[in-house]
Write a protein that binds this DNA or RNA. Structure first.
Length: 644
RNA sequence: GCCCACAUAGCUCAGCAGGUAGAGCACGUCCUUGGUAAGGACGAGGUCAUCGGUUCAAGUCCGAUUGUGGGCUCCA
């Protein structure tokens, strides 16, 4: 048998061919215990099992739990452990696929009867036994023909389909299989060496999922779980899930009395209560002012527009199933699912010169979309919502500048809430309108603006709007969850379809370029995100209640009313709690309602014309004259503003 | 739209062998005037989501509808 040369950490080792990766690493004295113990290896840049025999010269690197791919590898391995457990308890179940996902893993099963919560417990117990038994992940290879035969014999129809697709789509000559206990799965691998690695796991939920994500194919049962290298990490993640539940905007919306949804009114339709409505108009007014400062015009369009317009715009072809239509005097109308049409008619209401451009029309436009019943969710997915929508009409010369202006606006407005974000560039989808040249131009313009500003972005191929490519912004909230809010879409097509023109320097009529964009996206959804981001403790400028005045005894009632009047006169949102309750009780309630400032008024304050100030969370600012508090509160409740 | 689960007082939930509804909080009245996260007593509150079926009898069993939750598909 020939010898091979294996390079590990810059040292070269001579070894017999067929030596496993794990054995080779031992030659280099890679730790076999502790956090640096390898769970897999990288051989000539290919991720391999430690049990993989080495057949050629090459560079070998250990992969331990600190490696970026380690957690996925572990979770995928735990998915196999789960599948083995499920197969041993329910032998009639057919297995499909079980990948690692962002915060865990899942495995999809075809099983006639649904899994029950009890089943999850039983599966977990079986998994623990498998972990304890430290079963080895055993890799083998087969020709696709053999593999098909093998899985057919086992009745694993889904695996048969997967192998056949691998052959058809990638012309593979060999497939790899992994055995764990009695369970053999088609799998690219690699895996952790044995099941003892998978001890820190938890099964989370069962849900339906279509085979291969296709709604025309069978509905499978998906079990979600998560796994980590240590119990501490697992506990931290479970705590995060608890925290997310605690911050759920649907719960906080009720607790803080912001909004409600009721089946009597209809699903996906938000009813804004006084505090929620106040929060919302505060946010909207902030945005209006910021747009006016940046040269936008505020406009408003009608709620319904004639159906033929939707046909001309392409919305009829692409979205008519998600629109509502009605008829007036024999004429068809569609309720608007977006705002751009009216804005184009404002553009068209006059002859435009290049001197008029850019035109920036901003509308807090309320739209209706017939979302499928199963997708509705609190404030984040509703059937009627308000977009902070704008359409910019510009010449090719100023396009770049306008895109950059929008990026700056996004930066400022999202930054106001402490959001960081990531950018994606979405390109032409399968279902689209417009010429190839227009798509190339538009995509190039967005790309150029991003790279000029050195903003890192990822390309999301085929995910653009039907009329143009777009920049999508995914913000990250306080819990690290990502939400898509802002979007910038470059459109050459609608100006064409609605024959928008301007007169250029040379006296010729030309087409303006149209930019569609939102910053918050949907006001409803954004308030949902803000609620969870702040856990209900909105910053003072946005909080529907900024100051709550508490009396110690009824002797302070009159003064409390005076203070409330003074605060309100200064534009502060103040309430007085004059109920016959103990101070501690009122404080508790004000804290739970997340009011930023509490003023305590007792005999001392009445006598001195002063207020005792307590901030949300318990910080005591002490007793101060009412005027001092007024100055402080006016300063602290100013909305953010930027120089540019 | 699809899979599964759920729907009881304003809120959170108990009621898990079918026999005419219960707790805590909130609310009302009274007592208490109490200085930084829940003072006390009493009281009022429900056609058990809606419609239909089984049964002598249905909150409880069955079906449909609506809505909600966890996902899937979709998201201009």
């Amino acid at each position: 048998m020939a010898n091979i040369q294996v390079t590990i950490k810059d040292a070269v080792y001579e070894a017999a061919e067929g030596l496993t990766a794990g054995e080779a690493l031992k030659l280099a004295k890679v730790p076999t215990k502790g956090p640096q113990r390898p769970l897999a290896a990288r051989f000539n840049d290919e991720l391999v099992d430690l049990s993989r025999p080495l057949a050629e010269d090459g560079v070998l690197e250990p992969v331990d739990q600190s490696a970026p791919e380690a957690l996925d590898l572990l979770r995928h391995s735990v998915a196999h452990i789960m599948a083995e457990a499920v197969k041993s308890i329910f032998p009639e179940v057919k297995v499909t696929i079980g990948p690692a996902i962002e915060n865990g893993f899942y495995y999809d099963f075809d099983k006639p009867e649904p899994f029950t919560p009890d089943d999850l417990g039983r599966i977990e117990d079986r998994m623990r036994a498998i972990v304890k038994a430290a079963q080895v992940f055993e890799r083998s290879e087969m020709t696709p023909l053999k593999a098909v035969e093998f899985f057919k014999k086992q009745g694993e129809d889904y695996k048969v389909e997967l192998v056949e697709d691998l052959v058809r789509e990638q012309q593979v000559k060999k497939v790899s299989l992994y055995r764990l206990g009695d369970f053999v799965d088609l799998c690219r691998g690699p895996h952790v060496p044995d099941s003892s690695w998978g001890g820190s796991f938890k099964l989370l939920s069962v849900a339906g999922a279509y085979w291969r994500g296709d709604e025309h194919r069978p509905m499978l049962q998906r079990i979600y779980g998560t796994a980590f290298f240590g119990g501490k990490d697992l506990e931290a993640h479970l705590r995060l899930l608890e925290e997310a539940k605690r911050r759920d905007h649907r719960r906080l919306g009720k607790d803080l009395d912001l909004f409600s949804v009721t089946d009597e009114v209809g699903g996906g339709l938000i009813i804004w209560h006084p505090k929620g409505a106040l929060l919302r108009v505060t946010l909207e007014e902030f945005e209006r002012q910021e747009h006016l400062r940046r040269g936008y015009d505020i406009v408003m369009g009608p709620q319904i527009l004639r159906t033929e317009l939707w046909k001309r715009s392409g919305h009829w072809d692409n979205y008519r199933d998600n629109m509502y239509f009605t008829e007036i005097d024999g004429q068809g109308y569609g309720i608007k699912p977006m705002n751009c049409l009216a804005h184009m008619f404002i553009y068209r209401s006059q002859l435009r010169s290049f001197r008029d451009l850019p035109l920036r029309y901003f509308e807090l436009g309320t739209v209706q979309r017939h979302e499928k019943s199963g997708v509705l969710h609190g404030l984040t997915r509703v059937r009627q919502f308000t977009q902070d929508d704008a359409h910019l009409f510009c010449t090719p010369e100023t396009l770049d500048q306008e895109i950059k202006g929008i990026l700056k606006l996004v930066d400022d407005l999202l930054g106001a809430f402490g959001f960081e974000y990531e950018i994606e560039l979405s390109t032409r989808p399968a279902k689209s309108i417009g010429s190839d040249e227009a798509w190339e131009l538009a995509t190039g313009a967005l790309q150029k603006a991003l790279s000029d500003q050195k903003r890192p972005y990822e390309v999301n191929a085929g995910d653009g709007a039907f009329y143009g490519p777009k920049i999508d912004v995914k913000l990250k909230d306080a819990l690290g969850r990502r939400w898509q809010c802002s979007t910038i879409q470059c459109d050459f097509t609608l100006p064409e379809r609605f024959d928008l023109t301007y007169v250029d320097h040379d006296g010729q009529k030309k087409r303006p370029i149209m930019l569609h964009r939102t910053v918050f996206g949907s006001i409803e959804r954004f308030i949902g995100i803000l609620t969870e981001h702040y856990a209900g403790a909105f910053p003072a400028w946005l909080n529907p209640e900024q100051v709550r005045i508490l009396t110690v005894t009824s002797r302070a009632d009159e003064f409390a009313r005076t203070v409330r009047t003074r605060l309100r006169r200064e534009g502060l949102r103040a309430e007085a709690d004059l109920r016959n309750e103990k101070l501690g009780y009122k404080i508790r309630e004000a804290q739970m309602q997340k009011v930023p400032y509490v003023l305590v008024l007792g005999d001392k304050e009445v006598e001195d014309g002063a207020v005792a100030v307590r901030k949300l969370g318990g910080q005591d600012l002490g007793v101060m004259p009412l005027d001092s508090f007024l100055a402080l509160a006016i300063f602290e409740t100013k909305p953010p503003r930027w120089d540019f």
